[in-house]
């Protein structure tokens, strides 16, 4: 039954990636990208790569999200 959860996570990943390219609100894109990284961390764990999962959760969902938010606060929120 675990393959069903994996399939759901992968589908969520694809939806997140498509929405991140389509959305014009860059702050929403950053939050979507953060959830993408969190689900990707779970998938790394399912692929038996726990150290990559720790890196993805800390760097992908934590540090780069705040870096993107800081960059957006310096520039414009909406994509033209």
């Amino acid at each position: 039954m675990i393959w069903l959860i994996d399939l759901l996570l992968l589908l969520f990943l694809i939806v997140c990636a498509l929405e991140a390219t389509r959305n014009k609100d860059l702050l929403s894109v950053v939050i979507i990208f953060s959830s993408y990284s969190l689900v990707m961390a779970i998938i790394w764990q399912q692929l038996n790569a726990p150290d990559i999962a720790i890196t993805e959760a800390a760097v992908g969902a934590g540090i780069t999200t705040m870096l993107f938010v800081a960059a957006i606060s310096k520039t414009s929120r909406w994509e033209e």
Partner: peptide, 21 residues
Amino acid sequence: TPGGGFQGGAVIGASMILLAV
């Protein structure tokens, strides 16, 4: 165990960023 200097350092750095935010 899984992890190491880079992974643990990234976790500690994220906690410092959380405090700053």
